[in-house]
Design a protein around this nucleic acid. Sequence first.
RNA 1: GCUCAGAUGGUGGAACUGGUAGACACGCAGGACUUAAAAUCCUGUUCCCGUAAACGGAGUGCGGGUUCGAUUCCCGCUCUGAGUACCA
Length: 1103
Amino acid sequence: MDYQFKDIEQKWQQFWAQNNTFKAEDKSTKPKYYVLDMFPYPSGAGLHVGHPLGYIASDIFARYKRLKGFNVLHPMGYDSFGLPAEQYAIQTGQHPAVTTEDNIATYRRQLDQIGFSFDWSREVRTSSPDYYKWTQWIFMQLFNSWYNKDAAKAESITNLVAHFEQNGSAGINAVCDEEILSFTADEWNALSNPVQQSELLKYRLTYLRESTVNWCPALGTVLANDEVKDGFSERGGYPVEQKKMMQWSMRITAYAERLLQGLDTIDWPEPLKEMQRNWIGKSTGASVRFPIDKTTHLSQLITNYIEVFTTRVDTIFGVTFLVIAPEHELVASLTTPEQKADIDAYIAVTKKKSELDRMADAKTVSGAFTGSFVLNPLNGEKIQIWIADYVLAGYGTGAVMAVPSGDQRDYLFAKHFNLPIVPIIDIQSIETEADPTKEGKYINSEFMNGLDYKAGTAAVIAKLEEIGAGKAKINFRMRDAIFGRQRYWGEPVPVYFKDGLPHLIEEDHLPLLLPEVDKYLPTESGEPPLGRAEGWSYKPEGAPSKSPPVGETSQSHKAGSYRETADPVYYEQVKDFSRDNRNQPTEAEEMLWQFLRSEKLGYKIRRQHIIGQFIADFVSLQKGLVIELDGHHHTSNKEADDARTEVLNHFGFEVIRFSNDEVLKDVQSVALSIKLKLDSLPERDKTKISGEETDAAKVSPTGGDLEGAGYAYELSTMPGWAGSSWYWFRYMDAQNDKEFASPEAIAYWKDVDLYIGGSEHATGHLLYSRFWNKFLKDIGKVGEEEPFKKLINQGMIQGRSNFVYRLIDEEGRGTNTFVSHGLIKEYKTSPLHVDVNIVENEVMNINKFKEWRPEFADAEFILENGKYICGVEVEKMSKRYYNVVNPDDIAQRYGADTLRMYEMFLGPLEQSKPWNTNGIEGVFKFLRKFWRLFHNDAWEFNVSGVEPSKAELKSLHKIIRKVEEDVERFSFNTSVSSFMIAVNELTDLKCNNRAILQDMVIILSSYAPHICEELWTLLGNPAGTLSYAPFPKFNSAYLIEDDFAYPISINGKMKMNLNIPLSLEIKEIEETVLANADVQKYLDGKAPKKVIVVKGRIVNMVV
RNA sequence: GCUCAGAUGGUGGAACUGGUAGACACGCAGGACUUAAAAUCCUGUUCCCGUAAACGGAGUGCGGGUUCGAUUCCCGCUCUGAGUACCA
């Protein structure tokens, strides 16, 4: 029979599925090998043509390793939480779980069709409760951990608490928030539990904090940095703005150093490692405190120095000015009255600039002088303080010491504003630009003069440390990762809120199931979709089970605490107003806020907070202090103010007021008096809120006051990368309902030996996965420091579009005539995308074109050589370019084996390339030719049992060696070529030898498994044994040659080949060559000056 | 701007540690079979000169260097792609 790929492929795909052929053994004496693909997000569009490329490569490798005697783990699953299913749900009302299920079915069908050797018994889906139970569990472990810098690992939070109880905060070297309390053991033990908890939150590896987030209004969610491209969302392309929100974060920065160091131990593509290094962005330098010069400044300051971070502390004597970010907290207080207009104007301009403007405008020098000075800590020299938007508030301390002689940006700034430029190194040349050299000796640098870079740096740091003005410091660019999304289709965070503080739910209550909601949209009050879930609240063990309160309680922590004192009816009416107020503060409010925010005074202050029926400008809920600034709407209304004060007192709040002028004139002294007031106040009497005797009874309390009726759950869900940050462990023990994977399974499978996927995950998935892996190692759950030992990036598949050229008539209108590509220069035409599926090797099928769209039914063509040739361009693969190629079509037409081999044949795996089916015929022909080796002219199976000839053995062993070498270095394209060569040779030899062909079947089976299984059984082997057959052993004896056709070159140019026995030594070869008549002809009677002979390689003569 | 990767026939690409550049495949041209087409098979196919052929010259983005010999190593440049963006 001729090669019937359809029947064969169907038959074997069924066989593999029914017999669990590729099920990995949990216990084995064989060495393990773990081959993993980045699992797909099951989108509605189905498997995209780029996906199979990596999957095929990994499948070939997995199959090859099985033949080589490894116990291979090669699983597949779905990253099935995600935005598209939710967007679709919003549009159609269909539950995302339903569409996800459908999409997975499509994916599975498509995957099966390509004949992958996945162990489907281990399939995972991140959206399945069995799976996300463990994602939530890991979240809980992170919550219960802090990072001990001394031990360089994560430790249990109970250790930290024990330390606080016994020793206070002294002796703790942790990765934590900036503003932590310091306390003795007694002080700690005296703190109330909520205060302790809020302090501990500053240490936990996952924690809440108000962060500036990338808010995408169109998607209604927060995006990670790597989900934002040029100010637009990566998915959907919607505008993204900066917004402050209370968010869950992951303290990935704790692992910055280990994430960096680990890169040196893993076999990943260098560009990928480089991307991670840049992302982590380690810089070694020093932090230096520049004391503020008080002589020029009268008003009180919160600090009396400005701290900068520098990587060139050795240039400190070259500092001629200091630049701080326009958003820097000290700007207002450093600005002298004379400079105020300038500074205000500059800040106003900066605020107006969009992100894009700032980028486009990178070369313009701008800034403004504050009028204040700092002193050089080493020689007391007065240094001007400037603000400029080239200094970023978010990096380092938001302040730089400017060294114009060594830094080009500072140089330009100094030139522009006529600031001094002091050379500090003897060989520096700074006439036209800065010279950042580290060579030479220091000058103008007092005690450093004459030293070189290394000695100088050490001397400066020693001096700074001695006088307490600075120390060596390492800075990272990487920020903590935000871990919340205001979305429905994701893992619920296993947290409830009590007293406005987050608490974990009991482990027994995992998984915290995703609740049903009526709509997949934010609530009317702007809460995430989970706010719609009715009666969704947490009841801890043993609590009296009152029916949960409706509506108001299922609020997030944030809204929960904001509403702590709010009249529920009134709240709904004014909450938008309050938010607007927050977003558009008055000048005085904003200025004061910079001193009150982030617990700078040691107290958490909220602004525009609703209390009863009022919106307080600022409030400390802890101390019950309301701070009011007189806005224009009630300056003249003393009565109203008094009424407010009375009501607020009623709720247990004290009120202090400041005028706008007071704040604008001297914000520091205002801040100072607030602090003094706060210090003097006792903790707020909260009974006044929940107490029944007050009007406040109608005020909606927090969950904490409900005494077990039900606490509000966190309403945001986890981001897309949560489930994918540990999934490779789940495959090791996918059915386990006691643990995320058993210690035995983890001890056996350890880590992923080969991971294949796209480089687009460089700073997302791959970084987060390494982080979680390290954390799980720290808590003793896994053994390896790195999850993915070797990683290969498959190249991206680009689209390849075809064009037809519509003829334009004299009046400039398009006609229904189309000009072949080669002739378009002779006509006036306009190009038009045409469906690539009706074009083959750039020749368009004219009939199909006419059928393609009704308006082309009567189209006419101007052909070249009777054909319509299309134009070609490489662009993104997209429906609107009609260049999408579906792997299904290829599999239907040529079969999975051809598809597999063709995708490999296209070129090196890592290279990006346009998808192009030109040439697929050649691969199909090859398989048919292979099939024919086993058959006679009448297509009857026919192999002989005679001894293989020397030539046959040589062909076979050449391919054995070639495939081994190629597969081991992931050069799949070259081995496909070699297979073709081998089959061509064997065809020429008319080989139908059983021994040879059977080995060929084994070697080829990892590339083209279906045809090989069929031939394997035709050869008389039991079905299903091919996948575990031993790979043929290479024997070099078959490749040894007696002769070698030496290339004979003259002056490096090859002239002829000459057969010389390999047994001859160099001297003899030279003689043989020179004695040859043809060689003499080339030499033209001249004697060569020199003869180079490389044995077995080449002979070269110099004349 | 910086970092990284890359540039080889009409096309995808091969040449692994410096040693016969263009393997393998597509496409194209010619031929065989066929009434014809498809399929299949055979031959040729880097370019230029010349041509029946032998033979000669050039040639791996551009310019230079090291070497008996460079697609491969070094220096400078051009272009393409990716990442990053005032990171102190």
